[in-house]
Amino acid sequence: MMLTGWLLFSLALFSIGLYAVLARRNLIAILIGIELMLNGASVNFLAFNAYLSKDPAVGQIAVLFVIGLAAAEAAIALSIILAVYRSRNAIDVAGLDELKG
């Protein structure tokens, strides 16, 4: 029961993040959604790590890597958001469609 519960929890986090990424027009809100999805994945790792792993250090290290990458991604994303905002004075993704086919 407990493992499934944790997995459903991580899935819920991921789905909420997915909703934010798909629904929101604000770039920062989308970034929040992405962070939620990453955390959902981290919870997933640690849940399996706690219940089924013979070598529990591996799962924790994986999550550490995820956190590190999330930090890098957030830094880049925020700087891009700032640049976008400076160049067009808005951070609405609906306007960011210059690359459409």
């Binding site: 997915l18 990424v21 798909l22 629904a23 989308i30 993704v93 469609d97 210059e98 459409k100 086919g101």
Partner: peptide, 17 residues
């Protein structure tokens, strides 16, 4: 198909999902 390439990030993410 090109009409689907509307340049909207979320449209792409949704497609990927």
């Amino acid at each position: 198909v090109a009409r689907g390439h509307n340049g909207r990030l979320q449209w792409y993410v949704g497609g990927a999902i």
